[in-house]
Design a protein around this nucleic acid. Structure first.
Lengths: 388, 388
DNA sequence: AGTGATTGCGAAAACAATTTCGATACAAAT
DNA sequence: ATTTGTATCGAAATTGTTTTCGCAATCACT
């Protein structure tokens, strides 16, 4: 065995004394008593992964005999480059089917070109449509989207935020849990300058941008529509008190009653948690009143469907005995018998708008400017409310 | 103005002749006639972004006076490290709230810990549920998920694949477009060793792993159920011929008819594209037959609902005149009048399974081993098929 | 000739991890 | 006493990109 050290030094005449010196990581190890140095056999590595080699900026640079920095400039439309060399580089890049490595780019630039989305549940048609809207504008703008579900759990929401921040998202779109009433977990990142846009389930406690529905206006229209159809005792199944969205809708309800000088009856106002068993209980409570409601407005349209199912079981005529209206829309609201009068929301549009605002904020670094946008909805009258 | 070069060399006694030499990138530039060198004023940069500095492996190393490589080993459970130093490092890392930079990790390791999913449309409840299942197991295994929608367009599907591959996903989950009949765009990557798992809309043309429903069995059960309920002329609204899933379901239909010696009538077999206007046309065609069907089986449950809506408009009694059954389930199938008998699928489970198989393939590098798994479904009998 | 401005390019330093392998110390075996 | 094995650590290379800034060349004025 020859000592590579002595060999290099060409001290060939010296008495070399190379002895074995154990095995390290599977390879025989030697010790040269001449140059007092250890060495081991080089392992044959790099399993020739030429086939999986993605071509890089360096490959292009070598091909053309130029520097990688020049290639980078050409591919990123920097001004600091000659048009001819740029064209040369761009052509070769497309010819070689060059795809930039996002990880290297992100590492170097310090951003990810990714936005995070937190929604309660992807399986709810509303949120699925919002997502579709978000995806649509995000991909057009060159952003990827990471989606997290909070499952209506405040704890999970906090974990989601940690996950997304660990993924170094450039911005955050969030619709809160119905449990969420404190926002410290978000404010931390907001204060660090992460752009955040709230949608649907928003809060006034944060000064970030918000996209919301015409909650007050929609409620008002629904209730006014009921009143115009002769309803006088209108009950409301409102949402959780924590949610701003619930309160806004409640406000619209009250505003409409006030306009028509209908007294507010607290028995007819119930804050629910959107759970099915709860809605049934509330329905029975209202039916048990000596003066039961002649119309029910649920803040979440599915609750109206659930209530109608139960009401039909109890032989209540809809809309003659009780009319129903709800917030939000779906195929089921249209096809259920009787079809449900709703204030139709535009979730896809909401997603588009939210993503737009967020990306604007990211690009312009407008952490501070916070605006609130309302997506216009639309009253769709169907059978469940037409008493005539 | 002092020349930084001469200053460094401490040649202070030399006559230094520093002259202005233009402005470069907004900064004054100078030329030193002594050392024949250009220099410009250093700009005050690095806007003190200390507050946004994420702590790195190097910070930990410096704190403890050790090498970053040691920290990396400690944080990655490598054997090559002392338990005590490891504990020390881990403690400091948690104290400092260290979050590894995924980009650096991916760049260095050459993988992304991300899986790509391509579905036709996120807004269809079935796919939303599959996604939820995928997310569930992926996040538990430490994988992120990127979602792309093909929108039933073969071209978009190809673009999706390019996007995902450019994102260097570690593996791919895909449910094909109803247009898709060639698979070259996928095979390229498959041959490069990218693990791919197909689900729902699968194909036999590729040798990758597949997760499917009990398509034949489910069809068979639905049709048998119809026959047991006295139906003799059973029509089937099958899916596009390109889809394997359509053909499997058609096979189940034929098998059931054969078992009960009911002749196959080609007038009663129609390959549709799942479009609403088409289903209406087909319904009218069937109604116009001199011997119209007494039951209709749609391969996609929503088509059954659509047909029932139209049938009701034409005063057809369901199930007395025509019974309906379909593949797939949803709240609407349960609440529509009459409620629809279906072969209930388990999309969430399908998503879980698909993600599991894919991650297994990724970890074990099993590009070659391809298995096909069937998710068991369940016949749910409702009113639309009970003639008695 | 002296000064000012502009253009095009490249070397080198980040970016934040992982991985390889040399070095050392010490224990155990021969 | 010499040889071998093991445990622990760190220096340096690697990953692919962006960014900064120096340098040379050129042109246009005085």
């Amino acid at each position: 065995m020859e000592c590579p050290n002595c060999k290099l030094n060409e001290d060939l005449e010296f008495t070399r004394k190379v002895v074995k010196a154990g095995i390290v990581r599977g390879a025989q190890r030697y010790y040269c008593n001449h140059c007092k140095t250890h060495f081991s056999e080089k392992r044959k590595l790099k399993i020739e992964n030429k086939n999986s080699h993605q071509i890089t900026i360096l490959d292009i640079a070598k091909h053309l005999g130029i520097a990688p920095s020049t290639v980078s400039k050409a591919l990123n439309n920097k001004s600091d480059i000659n048009v001819e060399t740029k064209n040369l580089i761009v052509k070769l890049a497309t010819d070689l089917n060059y795809k930039p490595n996002h990880f290297a780019k992100s590492l170097s630039r310090g951003n990810s070109n990714t936005i995070g989305v937190i929604i309660p549940n992807i399986e709810r048609p509303f949120f699925a449509a919002v997502l579709a809207g978000i995806q649509s504008v995000a991909s057009k703008a060159g952003y990827s989207v990471i989606i997290c579900q909070s499952d209506e759990s405040h704890q999970t929401e906090i974990l989601n935020i940690q996950t997304l921040m660990a993924s170094r998202v450039d911005g955050l779109l969030i619709s809160h849990t119905k449990e969420t009433s404190s926002f410290e977990h978000l404010k931390i990142h907001r204060n660090k300058g992460v752009p955040i846009v709230h949608f649907d389930r928003i809060s006034n406690e944060m000064d970030s941008s918000k996209i919301t529905h015409q909650n007050k206006e929609g409620s008002f229209q629904l209730v006014e529509h009921l009143i115009e159809n002769g309803c006088k005792r209108i009950a409301i199944l409102a949402g959780p008190k924590e949610l701003l969205i619930s309160n806004d809708r409640l406000d619209g309800y009250i505003a409409a009653l006030n306009k028509y000088a209908i007294p507010i009856d607290n028995d007819l106002i119930y804050n629910s948690n959107f759970q099915k068993d709860e809605t049934t209980k509330v329905l029975d409570f209202w039916l048990s009143l000596e003066n039961p409601p002649d119309a029910i407005f649920t803040v979440f349209y599915l609750n109206a469907i659930e209530m109608m199912v139960e009401a039909k079981k109890r032989n209540i005529k809809i809309p003659e005995d009780i009319a129903f209206v709800g917030f939000g829309d779906d195929l089921i609201a249209e096809l259920f018998e009787p079809s449900l009068t709703v204030f139709h929301l535009f979730p896809f549009k909401m997603g588009e708008k939210a993503a737009n605002v967020l990306i604007e904020n990211i690009i312009n670094n407008e952490h501070s400017k916070s605006k609130t946008l309302e997506i216009t909805g639309k009253l769709i009258v169907r059978k469940s409310s037409l008493k005539s």
